[in-house]
Amino acid sequence: METSGLNFILQAAFWVTVALTVAGASIAVFPRNILYNVLGLALALTGIAGFYLFLGSLFVALMQLLIYVGAICIAIVFAIMLSRPLHMEALPRPRAKVWLGILGSAVFFIGAVSVALKTKWLPAAGHVYNSSQWSVQNIGNALLTRYELVFEVISLVLLVAIIGAVITAGFSRRISS
């Protein structure tokens, strides 16, 4: 009896997460106010972190929060504050573009959903879900053994990106005190 009650709570939590994520994504896309977009994005990303939790990986969920919400969203907000689009008049979106966008994404959505539903997904041989295997230690080991090269390359890319960003954005102030 307890498990069924628990199950119900979990179910509810899952669908709440779904609702939050979709709502967040919608807020990220539809409103014209850019700050709403960012907050919507943060909400959607938090929701996705919730999905990762449901999928069994707390670590990735936390990384999602740390990197996406904590770093990327903040960076976007920072850029917004620096470029101040909030004070600018928002131009109307061209109607044709909007319809084209809706059409395109609708086509993609229908296609993807039908593929997802029609395909008969079969677990690979030897697939067993074991939560103990989804641990931080395993990820760390994999990162520094099998995926070491990729790890290094990504680190390099990040470094280059940071330097590039610094140079592009420029740290020099226009008025020196």
């Binding site: 979709v22 959607a44 996705i48 959903v113």
Partner: peptide, 8 residues
């Protein structure tokens, strides 16, 4: 898919 199409 929904998220992706929203992003698109």
């Amino acid at each position: 898919a929904l998220l992706f199409s929203l992003g698109l």
